[in-house]
Simulated scan of single mutants.
Amino acid sequence: MSIYNIKGLAPLALVTLLSACGGSDNDSDNDGVVDMPDPMPVEMSYEVTVTNLTYAQPLSPIAVVLHGDSALWTVGEMASTPLEILAEGGDNSDLIAMDAILASASGEGAVGPGASATLTVTTTDETATHLSVVSMLVNTNDAFTGLTAMDLSSLAVDSPQTWTLGVYDAGTEANSELAGTIPGPADGGAGYDAERDDVDFVARHPGVVTMDDGLSTSVLTQAHRFDSPAIKLTITRKQ
């Protein structure tokens, strides 16, 4: 057909011809669906400050961990092995390495009486809904302090929450206060021992007796006694 004959075509035929000759190349294979990029993960960051309120009980390096809604310890229940290791020897590495832990931070050294330590823990994991903080009182057999399974949904950005916390007994090592059984500077003794020779459940700690209160075999003095609270804990959501 000559181009000059287009003028003679009926309107409908002309539209059909033009459509066939000038079809659009913009049709996509996804029927108009546009692929959107994945959203950027939201980073959540928490600042934790622990202040030692005792007179002569250094705290082992502070462990701060994020996890789901399960507690790291429960009063009246048996301590896990990672908690036992921390409570008897101050080593938090096994606790931080637990499968349930989604993010963690550890202090670099002991926190002396009257001193404070601040750590920051960060994650993008939305299942990290709870926070725990734990440390050993090192001039004891198996005393520890801290907070477990704190629900992070209650924290607003830059709105700190503060607690004063007491002391727990892991129940894994008898509170003998004997020479060679306490890893802190009062004795320099052994830390973790896999054999459990106590009640084998977590409880509130009754306190130490000391040589000054009639336990002649104790390596502790009245300076090592502690009352509740033992620490002040402040948690602030930063982002």
Rank of each mutant, 00 (worst) to 15 (best):
P41L: 09
M98K: 10
N30E: 13
S80Q: 05
L18C: 04
M211S: 14
A97I: 04
Y192Q: 11
D169V: 00
T234H: 13
A110N: 11
G89S: 06
D31S: 14
C21D: 14
L137C: 00
G32F: 02
A103W: 07
S218L: 06
L215F: 11
V138M: 13
L18I: 07
A115D: 15
T181E: 12
Y168L: 12
D197E: 02
V202Y: 05
Q57V: 01
G146V: 08
I3W: 13
H205W: 10
T49L: 02
T236F: 07
G68F: 03
V167T: 07
K232I: 02
A194E: 13
P61H: 01
Q239T: 08
A20K: 09
E47P: 01
I6S: 12
A71R: 15
T129I: 09
G114W: 03
V167D: 05
A79M: 08
D200N: 13
S159D: 15
L12V: 12
T16M: 15
V64G: 00
Y168Q: 12
T221S: 13
M136D: 02
S60V: 03
A87P: 10
A87D: 04
D29F: 15
G180V: 11
P206R: 01
G107C: 01
D94F: 03
H205N: 12
D91H: 01
V65N: 05
T127E: 13
L233K: 02
D142I: 00
V15H: 06
A223E: 14
S116C: 01
L53Y: 04
V34E: 11
N92M: 14
G107P: 01
V167I: 11
I182L: 15
V111K: 02
Q222W: 09
T217M: 12
I231S: 02
M136N: 06
L119G: 05
I96D: 06
G191K: 08
L86S: 04
D25V: 15
N139D: 13
V138W: 02
L178Q: 12
D227G: 07
G191C: 03
T81M: 13
G107D: 00
G23E: 15
G76T: 04
V209Y: 01
T124M: 10
Q161D: 08
R225H: 07
G214I: 09
S70H: 10
S70M: 11
S19F: 10
L59G: 03
T148P: 03
L165K: 05
Q239R: 15
A97V: 02
Q222T: 14
Q57D: 01
G109P: 06
S2P: 03
D69Q: 11
V15M: 11
A149L: 06
N175S: 13
P160I: 08
T81A: 10
S228F: 04
P58A: 10
E108C: 00
L215K: 15
L14M: 14
V65C: 09
M1N: 11
N52F: 00
W73R: 10
T51A: 09
L14A: 14
I182Y: 04
A71T: 14
D213V: 08
T51K: 12
D125C: 08
I96R: 10
D213C: 07
W163Q: 06
S228L: 09
V34D: 03
Y46T: 09
L165H: 04
